[in-house]
Nucleic acid binder design. Structure first.
Lengths: 233, 233
DNA sequence: ATAAACACTTACAGTCAATGAAAGTTTCTA
DNA sequence: TAGAAACTTTCATTGACTGTAAGTGTTTAT
């Protein structure tokens, strides 16, 4: 049974949605506290998020962005903001649907079904800047082609993606590959990193692994300074 | 540069769309003859199809269904049919978006971008009834998990999927695996088939490979007679 | 400038999954 | 019920992935 989480502050609307989706056969939870929504969502890890844009504390846009950055959960935006610019912005942030209230029940359910179907079996797809990584098989999708990475290279890339722009220590990487930091030859890690770098090169990925001397490594975007978060409106 | 094909019979609308998309930086073609549209589309194999529903000769629904069955090209339906039932039906057939005319330029372009982004790197994903198969790596997505099939098993499954409900001969299968039908031990094929069946079982796939004695094999849906095409309206 | 620490590279041998051959068993059908 | 077709299991070979070893570069503090 598919699991949906609703992020909506207006109580009446929220209960109506919850009811409708329950009756349609989904397992449903609602967010009631609007601090650290993203963390709550990630720990619930639903199959789909139904997201309002006007929320107390946080911007729905911000939530959408973070979710898309840190997971592969589909996001369906349902809002009363009917400005075109809002729609464009949400879609640009990676929202999977944008519906405006009021919205007929059938339409909403159809879109929910449709989005879930599109994601069928594709949970665990991590999004990089210009590629996707399957966290189970380490299949990498980039530039309209796909490659299965060797397990170790996949695990390394996975760690880098999960950390975003942050620095990753060698211990982190050892932990990811071998599950422990002890009894591990530093050099083994080195070799695996070299191999990952080589495949990244050969696939012409725009990301690069750069060493932070004495600390660890970092994944950066080639030839592009840190523009990160543009302002929401 | 992304490549879009427009399926629209009304000339004025068609040219407007073509113009708009060209200016937005896409390579665009239009369908002008509405017989065997599906074949035309498949041979053009664009990155996205912009589809009207009311067409001479064929139903847009039928085209959508066939495209989704035989390829992984995204379909954006743009139509003046604003009935809810049309929308639901199109989405049910696997359409990736449903927009009603008139539609603002920005909205259309945003949806086009959005759909293309969703499909980024996912060309070559073959759709089965309840699973997806990556034709390059033979990664199989089913029931929220993914597995990389051994090359031979992947090739076999690929052939079955491409043929739909049709019978596949042993020669076809040998050809797919080894590129020739000569010098091949029938038994080698047999073993590979057994292996594929076993993995299909262990993944609880609803499809089954059944032998057609003296002819070949066929992929069927478990416990479900051939209901195939429900009527469009 | 130079030594020490850190980072990287290449080659090689062991391991393990995937494959085809062989030999046998089961299931259909005339 | 015999013969053909379909299936199964086991085993040796192959090849990709991996860690080890033994190096070569590169940075930084003195």
């Amino acid at each position: 049974m598919k699991y949906i989480v609703i992020v909506e502050d207006e109580v009446f609307m929220r209960e109506e949605l919850e009811d409708m989706l329950c009756k349609a056969g989904y397992k449903v939870d609602v967010i009631k506290s609007f601090e650290n929504v993203t963390e709550q969502l990630l720990s619930l890890s639903p199959d789909l998020i139904l997201l309002d844009l006007n929320l107390p504390c946080v911007s729905g846009f911000q939530i959408c962005r973070e979710i898309k950055q840190k997971s592969s959960i589909p996001v369906l935006v349902l809002t009363s903001r009917d400005q075109m610019r809002d729609e464009l912005h949400a879609l640009d942030l990676g929202a999977d649907e944008y519906l405006t209230k009021p919205c007929r029940k059938e339409r909403l359910l159809a879109r929910v079904t449709n989005v879930l179907k599109r994601y069928e079996g594709r949970t665990n797809l991590l999004e990089g800047a210009d590629f996707l990584l399957d966290r189970q098989t380490y299949t990498l999708y980039i530039h309209n082609q796909s490659v299965v990475l060797p397990k170790n290279q996949g695990k390394l890339l996975e760690v880098f993606l999960m950390r975003g722009q942050d620095i990753v220590t060698k211990d982190d990487l050892c932990l990811a590959i071998w599950g422990t930091t002890e009894f591990i030859d530093e050099n083994a890690l080195q070799v695996n990193l070299t191999r990952l770098k080589k495949t990244m090169m050969s696939l012409k990925m725009r990301q690069k692994i750069v060493p932070i001397r004495g600390v660890g490594y970092k994944l950066i975007m080639e030839g592009k300074s840190d523009e990160s978060k543009l302002e929401d409106f």
